[in-house]
Amino acid sequence: MTEQPEVPPEPVAHDLPKDAAHRLEELEHGLFTSDLSVNEFLLVKEAGFHPLGFVMGSSIYHIGIQTRKWGESQELTKLTEAMYTARELAMNRMEEEAEQLGADGVVGVRLDVNYYEWGNDSAEFIAFGTAVKAEDGTSYRNALGKPFTSDLSGQDFWTLMQTGHVPQALVMGTCVFHIAHRKLTQALGSMGQNVELPNFTQALYEARELAMTRMQDEAGRLNASGIVGVRLEEKSHQWGSHTIEFLALGTAVTKGSGEVTLPKPITIISLDN
């Protein structure tokens, strides 16, 4: 079983399209753009950061073909690699854009996958976020010297900073797994019975563990003290129901000042929804 690439692929330096360069130059002249709501915008300001610009990265990736064995549960390493590399490419380009703006980090990162009718076996991987910079000039770059990334909303970002933690990077682990079809005789044998199907259990278990371990390895490389807001997504994309991608995503954080300055919350009950 191969791991996802140990070290993320090095981004090709300055491979951003021309239009991106134009747009970012404009942003350097003081205009900021952001998809943050007003509430989030004010909270980011409150946390001592200024939004610099809406940044993005994209990669249209052709996903190769790997033969699956009908009756065997296995990881499809080629697909795992494709899903990981494509996302990493999109993320790297987004970081590059942030870098060009001189940002300390990117908040509210979203990762999307688009399929187009005309793109057989290929998919577009996109990363969006808002680049921010500390207003007091402190550097918040992560252990790798790159702008931090996080999928936290403005509210969550402010709250995290109040707890004395700083985000490091959006970390992810993925695993594309093929789950065996059952042989006809097996299916007949268990017909009408309520039984656990140990090979299914084991396959799903293994796939999820793999995705999560890979995510933790990423966090480990950043010397993070933990990961917050982990989500585990499962998707069949366009491969049919027996091939599933397990994607674990979270924001790796490190302890900063350690001081918790969160004001005491006011409890409320909504009267309507």
Binding site: P17, D19, Y61, H62
Partner: peptide, 25 residues
């Protein structure tokens, strides 16, 4: 059968998105 980035596709879509953002700016 390959895992490969379709660079001309990426470029076209990426540019279009950037251009919409630039016009907004």
């Amino acid at each position: 059968r390959q895992n490969v980035e379709l660079t001309n596709y990426t470029e076209a879509m990426y540019s279009a998105r950037e251009s919409a953002m630039e016009k907004m700016q």
